[in-house]
Design a protein around this nucleic acid. Sequence first.
DNA 1: CTGTTAGCGCGTTCAG
DNA 2: CTGAACGCGCTAACAG
Lengths: 328, 328
Amino acid sequence: MTSIRDVAREAGVAISTVSKVVNRYPNVSEETRSRVEAAIQKLHFVPNAAASALSSKQAARVALIISPGEGGVMDEINMQYLSGAFRSARELGLDVITVFAPMAEKQSVPEMIQYFRTQSIAGLVIFNLNREQTTLRGLIQSEEFRAAVVDAPIVNAHSSCVSVDNEQAQYDVADRLCGEGVMRRILYIAGSADGYITEERLAGMRRLARERNLVLTEKEGGFSQKRAREITGEYAADHDAVVCASDIMAIGAMRRLMEMDIFRPVCGFDGLSLMGYAGKQMYTVRQDFDGIACAAVAEVHRLMNGGEGRQIVMPHEIVRMTYEDVIR
Amino acid sequence: MTSIRDVAREAGVAISTVSKVVNRYPNVSEETRSRVEAAIQKLHFVPNAAASALSSKQAARVALIISPGEGGVMDEINMQYLSGAFRSARELGLDVITVFAPMAEKQSVPEMIQYFRTQSIAGLVIFNLNREQTTLRGLIQSEEFRAAVVDAPIVNAHSSCVSVDNEQAQYDVADRLCGEGVMRRILYIAGSADGYITEERLAGMRRLARERNLVLTEKEGGFSQKRAREITGEYAADHDAVVCASDIMAIGAMRRLMEMDIFRPVCGFDGLSLMGYAGKQMYTVRQDFDGIACAAVAEVHRLMNGGEGRQIVMPHEIVRMTYEDVIR
DNA sequence: CTGTTAGCGCGTTCAG
DNA sequence: CTGAACGCGCTAACAG
């Protein structure tokens, strides 16, 4: 392994001069710079990130923590999160590691703190946090690290939260759906009680019901397609429309309705391409997961530079998705 | 930041003794060991991975390179790959970074070599490599790093390949399908020409056709649901069954058949949970992506310890998937 | 503008 | 079994 010292010798300059060239410091003469660069080329010198971090003590590493859905439903969202996060990290010059939440949950809070510290982690970006993930929540509350939490309303001095306005988005999509005809009795299939976003979306739905004088039936679907099917089978016939707190539940509802051979408008939430498999066109809330992850990484970067925790609201969009929109 | 030196002072021993305790060296007396451990607890000492790697020069880092599918189809597979890879890496004590292939492809081979070297990367695990990914292929051929390549038959002194027996698997699933009734004319919708696995699967299909005296029509579906739909619409009526080289194409074929209101048995390849949305039950090849990734990481680990490149064949399974099997 | 020097935190001989 | 001393590759003051 050729080191900075070899380059210095080759170029006939001091070690620190090489360092300055490598790190683009301004105060190096054009001549020595080019001499050093020639030596770098010649020796195929490659700076050692570990040594650099050790010396400068600027180990700006960030851990991305994702919760894979067992059924493959969350995968599309998670990959978009990762895609945005990696891109953003690269742009900001942040070093990133990826952690699967279940692994973290198997450990205790001190163990995870220990692990992240040995890894020189200074910031966390946590996706899809729910109430049952006690280790992760403990990690945030310990305030040992700066954190950007996506879709969970946790804000303190060291942590920000990033998400769409779930309340408003649920309101908007249901509003659109209900504007399509005369609908009074709405079946709302909510998420699961352990999800933070569930309440916010429910609140949006309730506000719409109040304003529009709708009769609302609320059921807990737990983000499960199966549950949504069952609920639809049991209640949909007595309602004019089915509003679901997630796409996957909307697909379940739609399929059940087709089996029952009755038509009810259905809407979902998230904007997955999976929606195209529902069989009919459907309104949903399109979230820019890529952009959300991007913003979350930027936010943790800001926090690591001394920023205060805050809440960030990302834009959303109501779309109508069909099979044709989705397939490739 | 409390360092090994603080611990040594606290415990009243030398720095090297602390190091030995931390790294579980045998030659430390029970008494000093416990004294050191007490000090570690007390001071919340956490070893610094960067410093450790720098000093010991054992930076056993591995890069996982994944190709996200634009349409969200590949996401389920990729997440399973990541899941298995992370788990395996943790068990083997390997440090891991994740890289999206499109980012790598934007760079030149020397740039990527440079990047990986600064990151102390010694091994690569490459998923879903295709012929168009020239940078990645150059990276492998440079033999700068040890590599385990999933689903692409590239083997040299420093690289192994890991995959199911695609030829046999395609043979098996089509065999099962054709065993269900009297079928002579088979429509085979292959993958894309730039995918390595495409030929292998095609070869398996051809072997079956030979042995069973089938009339085979081969079309290139490019792993595209849309293409598979079109091909099905054009040719399926004249055939007895449709064999697809991927689940996503099988879904397209099945949907088209339903629209055409004719029934033809269809089979896919991969075992995605997405298959449940096809509408009917369907044979497919279930690959254990998690296990494949796990094996690939283990393999690159072996290569990094001086092993020779080789080919590893993972087991596959023919399954019949239905909507009910898949939803949760 | 360039060179000298002192660490960053740790692993590892090699004497004792 | 223990500890002093050196070096990993690099950055960051300082002098010059």
